[in-house]
Lab assay of single mutants.
Amino acid sequence: MPVRRGHVAPQNTFLDTIIRKFEGQSRKFIIANARVENCAVIYCNDGFCELCGYSRAEVMQRPCTCDFLHGPRTQRRAAAQIAQALLGAEERKVEIAFYRKDGSCFLCLVDVVPVKNEDGAVIMFILNFEVVMEKDMVGSPAHDTNHRGPPTSWLAPGRAKTFRLKLPALLALTARESSVRSGGAGGAGAPGAVVVDVDLTPAAPSSESLALDEVTAMDNHVAGLGPAEERRALVGPGSPPRSAPGQLPSPRAHSLNPDASGSSCSLARTRSRESCASVRRASSADDIEAMRAGVLPPPPRHASTGAMHPLRSGLLNSTSDSDLVRYRTISKIPQITLNFVDLKGDPFLASPTSDREIIAPKIKERTHNVTEKVTQVLSLGADVLPEYKLQAPRIHRWTILHYSPFKAVWDWLILLLVIYTAVFTPYSAAFLLKETEEGPPATECGYACQPLAVVDLIVDIMFIVDILINFRTTYVNANEEVVSHPGRIAVHYFKGWFLIDMVAAIPFDLLI
């Protein structure tokens, strides 16, 4: 008679799926529990143990900040960024110097990925580790590398530091407007667009060049630039800015003055950032001319202004700041037409079709709590990747769950009947059967004279019903998954307890 339990259901295979997918890609990662103190490590794979030199037993239950890997060259700011990422709910990448158990130093890129439950609360953290440099290539500990984003994938490793954006290309926007319009339909740009040429040739750093990471940081200074100062900065030398009595002219307006920039070969870094931020506020060169004239017309309804409409929906549905990093990277690809469009465009503009998908598509409701890094690593669709929660398995109709209350009560009843059979069957065979043979035949009273025979008949009927119930009862397979398919249940029961239950259900007393 089957006594099969499996009270692990309803099970959740999400954690096993993450481990299996990460292991298949030869990654070095740990999984931490966000619900406990210090976000203790609950799993670390073999790749991480080989990377740091510690065994799994030495890593388990330690804080996922990996303070046991810190050393003299470990930056405090990087460690603080990892700790801050564990307090938030967004994906974050941090470069930090770690030390192995043998004392060797290596520069590592740590990717902190939160995993949320159905309520939107962070319950786990996945920390992925990628070695960037070994100890002989690690720089000085005073050099802070965590304020910069990861290198873009479309640049060669040897040319990542030679990417320079020439400031004269930004200063000569109005001069290039006529050349853009003359391109017409034969050019790649839309009317009114501004073409910015980027020099990728390796050259020595000069005062006129600005690194790509500095251009990325310009967006942080746009908020500090007032509207009046932006307007004066875009007017140009024809209309000098008016300053109040006793007030000095704005240095932001002076930063885009061609006369002032041409007199000296070098520009201050602050002026460069502010000038680029001011130019980015204009949607095209037409807006710059309109600002000089004193009238700013409404933005025209053409394809170039609607190019950012799908980007707005993608940004609203993005799951991490990696989408913004990807957008900034692609927006700086050289030799393309940049349409400086305000994100607050007309909502009635139709979304044009684009061959290049900048932001990841909208994630469906079932995966809105899973970050983009987890979705990318697992390579699963929205119909396959579940949320991290207890999910009731989908069972067929008329199927009994093996952990249901009805099955528990039924098993206790069958257990009592088995005990009765084990006690009274030998007793009936030894004593009652002998008395029946010696006594007179009682054929007239039937079952009324033999109450134990009636009980034995009921017990046999219950055993037959138990066999039928076992054909529709779920079970737990070797992978700790609840199986509810009727065919698989029948095959599993035939290979197991079916023969024993059938022999126990045969009414031998009635056959004798």
Rank of each mutant, 00 (worst) to 15 (best):
C39N: 15
T375L: 14
R27L: 06
T371E: 01
F98M: 07
A97P: 01
H7N: 03
R292C: 05
D197K: 03
T17E: 08
H302S: 05
R5I: 08
P72F: 01
S178H: 06
V94E: 05
L51S: 01
I363N: 03
D119H: 08
R273I: 12
G224W: 06
T152E: 05
G262H: 15
G224R: 14
A211R: 11
K166I: 01
A89C: 13
L385M: 14
C52T: 14
K344M: 12
P168N: 05
G103A: 07
H254L: 07
R269I: 14
L343P: 12
Q25A: 11
V325R: 12
L155H: 11
V113I: 13
E23I: 01
L385S: 09
A188Y: 05
S243C: 08
S207Y: 13
T216N: 09
H147D: 05
K332C: 04
S354L: 05
E214Q: 06
T145I: 06
Y327N: 12
R281H: 11
S331Q: 07
S351M: 07
V222H: 05
R181L: 08
G149T: 08
G314F: 08
R35Q: 14
V138K: 10
L173N: 12
I42V: 12
R252F: 09
E289S: 04
D16S: 15
Q75T: 12
Q335N: 15
P386D: 05
T305D: 07
A253R: 11
L173A: 15
V36I: 07
S322I: 08
G186L: 07
N339D: 15
R356Q: 07
C108Q: 01
T65G: 03
E230D: 06
G236Y: 15
Q75A: 14
A282T: 05
R92E: 15
D323L: 06
D119R: 06
S209P: 05
P298Y: 01
S178F: 06
R312T: 14
G314Y: 08
E50M: 03
T13P: 08
G246Q: 05
N38K: 15
A293I: 14
A211F: 13
S178Y: 06
S322L: 07
D46R: 10
L170H: 15
P157N: 07
A32L: 01
N117M: 15
A277I: 15
L380H: 01
D355C: 15
G88E: 13
D287V: 09
P151A: 13
L171F: 15
I30P: 01
P347D: 04
N33R: 06
S26V: 05
R252C: 15
F22C: 07
E208F: 04
K344Q: 14
G71M: 01
V132F: 15
D119N: 05
P251R: 11
G149Q: 06
K135H: 13
R92M: 13
A57W: 07
G236D: 15
A34K: 06
L225W: 15
P334T: 01
P352D: 03
G47Q: 11
M218C: 15
A79L: 13
T270W: 03
S182L: 05
R5N: 10
G47S: 11
V370C: 10
S278E: 11
I330P: 14
E37A: 14
A169Y: 12
D46M: 05
I288L: 09
N128G: 15
Q247A: 11
R301I: 09
H254W: 15
D67N: 09
A80Y: 06
G238L: 14
G24W: 07
R328G: 14
C64I: 09
I30Q: 01
Q335K: 14
M60A: 01
A217T: 06
L167G: 09
R27Y: 09
L127G: 01
E95T: 08
P297R: 12
L155V: 15
L225P: 05
G88R: 14
P168K: 03
L338K: 09
E230I: 09
L15K: 01
R292D: 03
G103S: 15
A142M: 09
A193Y: 01
A121V: 09
R281V: 11
C44A: 14
F106G: 01
M308E: 14
G186R: 14
T216P: 10
E289N: 04
D119A: 06
I288G: 08
H309F: 14
G120I: 03
S243R: 14
L225N: 12
N12E: 10
R77P: 15
S239F: 09
E230M: 07
P205C: 06
Y54W: 07
L385Q: 07
S320L: 07
L86F: 01
P202A: 06
E357H: 15
A188W: 01
G139A: 15
P237V: 13
S351Y: 04
T337W: 14
S140I: 11
H302L: 12
V341F: 04
E95N: 08
T152Q: 12
R181E: 06
G186Q: 15
N317I: 09
A307I: 12
E372L: 04
E365P: 14
M124A: 12
L380D: 03
N220H: 06
G294P: 14
A228M: 06
R5L: 15
L107C: 06
